[in-house]
Amino acid sequence: MTDVFKSADDLSEGYYKLIDARFSLGDPEAGRKAFEEGHIAGAVYWDLEKDMSDMDSDRGRHPMPSRAQLTELFRRSGLSLDDRILIYDGGGEPFAARAYFLLRYGGFRHTFILKEGFDGLRTAGYPVDAEPCRPQVSDVEPDWQAHLLASREDVKGVSEGREEGVLIDARAAERFLGKHEPLDPVAGHIPGARNFDWTRLKKEGYFDTGEAVEQLLRKTADKDEKVTVYCGSGVTAAPLFAMLDHIGQEDLRLYVGSYSDWVSDPDNPVEKESD
């Protein structure tokens, strides 16, 4: 098991660099406003759409940033590959997990998600202030972990049986089955995918790292399977990626473009419950 998720009351002594990833899909400015009103002292802010996505790309609703964009983000955040990095959002949300995936992709070796989020750290006595954090810019050279990132072509290979592996869709069952689709132009899922609603990873509002969640995940994917996770736009699949990483899934990828990228190509097939 890899130690990905940490609780505020079991943080080991020592220094962490902090990333505040609070965000609201319903109000894209809410996270930054919350950060400016008060954040854990020393934290830098990563915005889902301005920092952790390339919104000028046409590869889905929250496309993957380029390596150049990520390198710039890592450097202006003052990060080095050996830093211990603790990421928080509001707790039980997908945004810290998105940051976790990007850091893992960049080769950062000691990156963690705080289960209880901002309030957990504040309650544990970490100081809160509204001062902007301006870390010293680093010259970090990312150690790209390309095997963690799945392209549309990779996913097509798995879906068509030309490439070994399984696809896991992290959306709610109604969207997976094509019964309800509020965001994308075509309802359904990538052919052959399995479904595991990412919200099943939570208990009482926070991510649950107990044996029960591991058992649920193992009913969906065996430890030795090559797993590619996706969702609607690559955001809510990130907690599923992080939890599978936490329980030791050895061959694991994230399709950041996800379903929104898949259906942007009208030639790509989809499955629905009625199919």
Results as ranks from 00 to 15, higher is better:
residue 206 Y to A: 02
residue 60 G to P: 00
residue 57 S to V: 04
residue 213 V to Q: 09
residue 261 D to R: 00
residue 36 E to I: 08
residue 238 A to Q: 01
residue 232 G to R: 11
residue 35 F to R: 00
residue 136 Q to Y: 11
residue 39 H to V: 03
residue 246 H to C: 13
residue 74 F to P: 00
residue 227 V to D: 10
residue 23 F to H: 05
residue 238 A to G: 02
residue 3 D to L: 14
residue 194 R to I: 05
residue 110 H to Q: 09
residue 47 D to Q: 04
residue 118 F to E: 02
residue 132 P to K: 06
residue 75 R to H: 11
residue 215 Q to C: 06
residue 177 L to E: 14
residue 232 G to Y: 07
residue 244 L to C: 04
residue 44 V to I: 10
residue 208 D to P: 07
residue 133 C to Q: 13
residue 92 G to K: 10
residue 226 K to P: 02
residue 13 E to V: 05
residue 269 P to M: 08
residue 64 M to R: 06
residue 52 M to L: 14
residue 72 E to A: 14
residue 41 A to G: 06
residue 94 P to S: 13
residue 33 K to R: 15
residue 133 C to H: 07
residue 180 H to E: 13
residue 56 D to W: 03
residue 2 T to L: 13
residue 126 Y to D: 08
residue 193 A to Q: 03
residue 53 S to R: 08
residue 69 Q to L: 06
residue 139 D to V: 02
residue 160 E to C: 05
residue 188 G to R: 04
residue 44 V to L: 04
residue 198 W to Y: 14
residue 231 C to P: 03
residue 257 G to D: 01
residue 130 A to N: 15
residue 45 Y to S: 05
residue 141 E to S: 12
residue 226 K to Q: 12
residue 85 I to T: 07
residue 110 H to F: 12
residue 9 D to T: 15
residue 152 R to I: 03
residue 256 V to W: 01
residue 228 T to A: 14
residue 258 S to M: 10
residue 169 D to W: 01
residue 258 S to K: 03
residue 109 R to H: 03
residue 178 G to V: 06
residue 69 Q to Y: 04
residue 237 A to W: 04
residue 116 E to L: 09
residue 207 F to E: 03
residue 150 A to I: 12
residue 58 D to G: 15
residue 188 G to V: 01
residue 137 V to S: 13
residue 266 P to L: 02
residue 53 S to Y: 01
residue 21 A to Q: 07
residue 55 M to W: 11
residue 176 F to L: 07
residue 208 D to S: 11
residue 155 V to C: 14
residue 185 P to T: 06
residue 115 K to Q: 05
residue 186 V to S: 09
residue 180 H to C: 02
residue 259 Y to N: 14
residue 56 D to V: 01
residue 76 R to F: 08
residue 198 W to S: 07
residue 10 D to S: 15
residue 160 E to Y: 03
residue 233 S to D: 02
residue 119 D to W: 09
residue 157 G to D: 06
residue 81 L to T: 05
residue 96 A to N: 04
residue 59 R to I: 00
residue 110 H to M: 02
residue 240 L to G: 01
residue 145 Q to F: 08
residue 224 D to R: 10
residue 9 D to G: 10
